[in-house]
């Protein structure tokens, strides 16, 4: 564990808390893509199957359980108590392509053809693209509530810090995983446009509005 990874994980945890705070305070899930949230649940479940086979640390186990259960809870919130505030028409990304595309990539690139390893690779490629329905929704509406942009910023910062963590690990431990590094770089790149608007508008106290 290094400081970059620790801060990244805490940003990830923080992003989920911000999203829950948004839902609780506004009693609404407007602006949030159900598809992106559902993809994250699939990502966590397929990646953390090793909870049953491979113990890393109490921290690691706690975080895995938190990510799976919070993702499930967010879907429940969007489907049950906040159902009426969800706008299906804005959440129009064809996510079948993401689910299928990640499957093809996992079968081509997995390190080993075992069920757990292939599902792990699937989760990496699915996470790489899981934010796309949310970004499409943002593009369609052209603006977002400030708290939603803080959620997205924390999520993007978590990914960016993982890249710094991999550089650090390569230098200090000569540890590198080609699949997670490549997918992580693509995933972070998807946030570039968002980061630009966030830094130039939201942090200056203005509303998030696409040009």
């Amino acid at each position: 564990m290094n400081i970059f990874r620790l801060v990244a994980d805490l940003m990830h945890l923080g992003s989920i808390l911000i999203l829950l705070l948004k839902m609780f305070t506004s009693r609404s899930c407007a602006g949030i893509s159900f598809k992106t949230q559902a993809l994250y649940l699939i990502v966590f479940v397929t990646r953390y199957l090793d909870l049953f086979t491979h113990f890393v640390s109490v921290y690691n186990t706690f975080m895995k359980i938190f990510f799976i259960s919070s993702a499930g809870y967010i879907l429940y919130m969007m489907r049950v108590p906040l159902k009426d505030t969800y706008n299906k028409h804005l959440d129009a990304f064809r996510w079948e392509f993401l689910l299928g595309g990640a499957g093809v990539l996992a079968l081509v690139f997995t390190h080993k053809y075992t069920v757990i390893e292939t599902l792990w690779t699937y989760s990496i490629f699915l996470e790489m693209m899981a934010i796309l329905p949310q970004l499409l929704q943002l593009q369609r509406t052209g603006e977002a509530e400030t708290i939603t942009t803080h959620y997205l910023f924390a999520l993007g910062a978590y990914r960016a810090l993982y890249i710094v963590n991999w550089i650090y690990r390569y230098e200090t431990e000569h540890h590198v995983d080609a699949i997670s590094t490549m997918a992580g770089i693509v995933q972070t790149a998807l946030y570039c446009d968002f980061f630009y608007v966030y830094f130039t508008r939201v942090l200056k106290g203005k509303r998030f509005k696409l040009p």
Binding site: D9, D50, H54, V56, S57, F67, H111, Y162, H175, A178
Partner: peptide
């Protein structure tokens, strides 16, 4: 490296 490396990241 790769599959033989312990998966210690989240």
């Amino acid at each position: 490296m790769g599959a033989d490396a312990p998966k210690d990241e989240l």
